[in-house]
């Protein structure tokens, strides 16, 4: 008898190491749980709620919930899929998400989750917010229209790059991503295209200039197989070491 601890995820036995979250154990076992603010290299954030599952009948975010032996987890059920679909739809109407003209199309997790969850329509009434882009930086474009407030760039900039380039400002519906500079412009910070914060955006906010549409349609990460079949891409890995300032 092995003394490997396990829990049940949609009826499937998932082994886990002590200290792992439900999300980490599931992804390690090759089972995908939809998520946006989770990133394998960062501490869980629990804010996007896409990864909400039912644990012993109660809703919980799987990215923050420590795995425990014998727990029964429901994830891919009609009820939870409906809720996740509604979350994606709300994100789609809250920003300006025009996939045909977005460089991140085919690489975008929000879009990939829309496909995986069968989101055929944004359903709600669009906000069409006015969010000017910041093209001031020589190497990187910021298109705030697509921001979903996952805070990955904020976390990467402070925890890995040691720079604190990004932050959130405002509350409730007025919450938005800002650049920590007196002018508010990215060019007036020490941000570099090689920073971790430039690599982690799950949607099309932080884009390297002069590289758009480099990968042809058909060869992009989510063209060949749906994100739900790519659990191995998101397996937990050791966090990137903090750079010396």
């Amino acid at each position: 008898m092995s003394d490997q601890k396990t829990f049940l995820l949609d009826g499937r036995e998932i082994p886990f190491e002590p200290g792992q979250t439900v999300m980490q154990a599931a992804l390690t076992a090759g089972v995908f749980i939809p998520h946006l603010c989770y990133h394998p290299e960062f501490r869980p954030h629990g804010s996007c709620k896409l990864c909400t599952v039912k644990i012993n009948g109660r809703p919980a975010t799987s990215c923050t919930m420590p795995a425990q032996a014998g727990m029964e987890v429901e994830s891919d059920t009609a009820e939870i899929r409906d809720k996740r679909r509604a979350l994606v739809q709300m994100l789609l109407v809250e920003g300006n998400h025009f996939c045909p003209s977005c460089e991140k199309s085919g690489h975008c997790k929000l879009q990939a989750l829309g496909y995986a969850l069968g989101v055929m329509t944004p359903h709600f009434t669009h906000f069409f917010p006015d969010r000017p882009v910041d093209a001031s930086h020589p190497e990187v474009l910021l298109d705030f229209n697509r921001c979903i407030l996952c805070e990955l760039c904020i976390r990467a900039s402070s925890e890995v790059d040691g720079k604190n380039v990004f932050a959130l400002s405002g509350r409730g519906l007025k919450k938005h991503l800002i650049v920590n500079a007196e002018s508010g412009r990215l060019a007036d910070t020490d941000f570099q295209a090689t920073d971790k914060a430039a690599q982690v955006c799950p949607v099309g906010v932080i884009l390297a200039k002069r590289k758009g549409f480099a990968v042809p349609i058909g060869q992009r990460p989510f063209d060949a197989s749906p994100i739900s079949a790519q659990a191995e891409r998101y397996k937990p890995v050791a966090p990137a070491p903090k750079k010396e300032a």
Binding site: N96, H97, F98, P100, S101, M120, T121, P122, H126, F128
Partner: peptide
């Protein structure tokens, strides 16, 4: 038709 598309920009 679904989300306004390019004209909605």
């Amino acid at each position: 038709a679904v989300n306004g598309g390019l004209p909605a920009q």
